[in-house]
Computed example of a mutant assay.
Amino acid sequence: MTEHTLSEAEYDAITDAAAHWCMRLHASDCTGEERQAFQQWHDAHPLHAFEYEAMLEIWDVAGDLPHPQSPAPAPPPSVGTPGKYPRSWRTLGVVAATCALALPLAAYTGWNLGWVPNAYQHFEATDNLRQVTLNDGTLVELNLGSELTYTHYRDERRVTLKKGEAFFTVRHDITQPFTVKAAEGRIRVTGTRFNVWMYEDKVRVNLIEGSVQVTSQGDLTHNVSYLRPGMQASYRQGDFAPQVSQTSANDSALAWRTGKLVLDDLPLSDALPLINRYLSAPVMLADSNTAAIRIGGVYDTRQVKNLVTSLPRVLPVYLTRNQDGNPVINSMPLQPPKS
């Protein structure tokens, strides 16, 4: 049986319908009948689901747009293989127009006021390091298991680091600052080279060239730390301000760019966040005694799982599992535990 190839008009109709449903399902007056009709449309073809999910991604990054009081519906489950359907840039244009109608304003007014982006990109690196070029010409290197989105507004360029680690070489543009959101904090530059590492709510920023502003609370008007080359800032959720320190000449924070994880005589409490970044299930520590044990060495980032299983051969520890199935590192007692 021959697969039907969608015409340009049919594809446009699906894109328009996805934009319509994105607007209606975010509206406070959306009815149960409309939600049922949406679900029938969504399930009718894999491309319907794919286009709607693309709309939700772009709606989500448009953080300055006002949202209705009622909660937005959860994204429907993925259907089909997104890679089969190239995302059209028309998607962004339709969403911009949809959001503008919801304001309501003309789409061009949304761009002029800085509410609606004119470019959106999404990148992931899974099992390989990846280098990408953003729409503005900025170069980004992504570590394993990293994901980010980029949106270009009239007066600002914005990146959201969703997980992992990235090294940025930002194209200089003093009229359009470049902002990276990582956890609850923000990093702002106009043109520079810097690295952002994130695990759960922990973030570390290392500056190589230029200057950056860092805040731990998302507001770049208060409690801002200014970094110069050779400095780093660290924060986690709830911190009043980032902790700033000078890095050493042999700092290994960028070793990941060559596929290496360097642990420089660290206590396990500090090493585990660096290790867990590469694992699907995090390793836990049994107690404070275990947390104080130190570890060093240079490891292949692709083989971090093997590092965990080999720990009892290089440290006075043994491994167990907790009730969730996560590996737990325990310090070796004076007498071995009974089986």
Rank of each mutant, 00 (worst) to 15 (best):
H172T: 10
H122A: 10
S7M: 08
L274E: 01
V203S: 02
F240D: 12
L261N: 04
A286F: 07
I208W: 15
W111A: 09
H152Y: 14
I275W: 05
R277E: 02
H20A: 12
M284K: 13
C22K: 09
L148F: 02
G218I: 03
D287A: 03
H48Q: 12
P282Q: 06
A62W: 05
I58F: 01
P229S: 08
N289A: 11
H152R: 14
I293S: 03
S331H: 15
M198V: 00
S146T: 00
P46Y: 10
G297R: 00
P73K: 05
W197F: 15
F240L: 14
V212Y: 04
P86W: 07
L103N: 12
L129M: 02
G110N: 09
Q121E: 13
R90Y: 08
W41I: 11
A74P: 10
T309R: 10
I295G: 03
L129C: 01
P242I: 13
L47M: 13
H172D: 15
S225V: 14
Q232A: 05
R35C: 12
S88K: 07
V314P: 07
S146G: 00
Q217S: 14
D64R: 13
R313Y: 05
Y226M: 15
T190K: 11
D155G: 10
L268G: 01
W197K: 09
E200G: 04
G93K: 03
L113I: 03
G191R: 02
E124C: 09
P333K: 02
P117F: 08
Y235M: 09
Y11C: 09
L334T: 14
S269E: 08
I275F: 07
L279V: 00
A125G: 09
N250V: 06
P282M: 04
M55I: 05
W115L: 14
S234F: 10
T126Y: 15
G259I: 00
L268K: 01
L129G: 00
A106T: 07
A166V: 06
P327W: 14
E10W: 02
P282A: 05
M1R: 13
W256Y: 10
Y318T: 01
I293Q: 05
V196N: 02
L254W: 12
A17S: 15
G145P: 01
P71Y: 10
C30Q: 12
T169N: 12
N250H: 14
Q39D: 15
L307N: 04
Y52P: 06
R204N: 07
A183M: 10
G238A: 12
R24M: 14
T221E: 09
E53D: 12
H222L: 08
N135W: 06
K305L: 06
V224D: 03
L279C: 07
D29V: 11
T179V: 15
T81C: 08
D12T: 14
G80S: 07
D287F: 06
D155S: 10
V314R: 15
Y150A: 01
H67V: 04
D239E: 04
L134R: 01
A183R: 05
G218M: 09
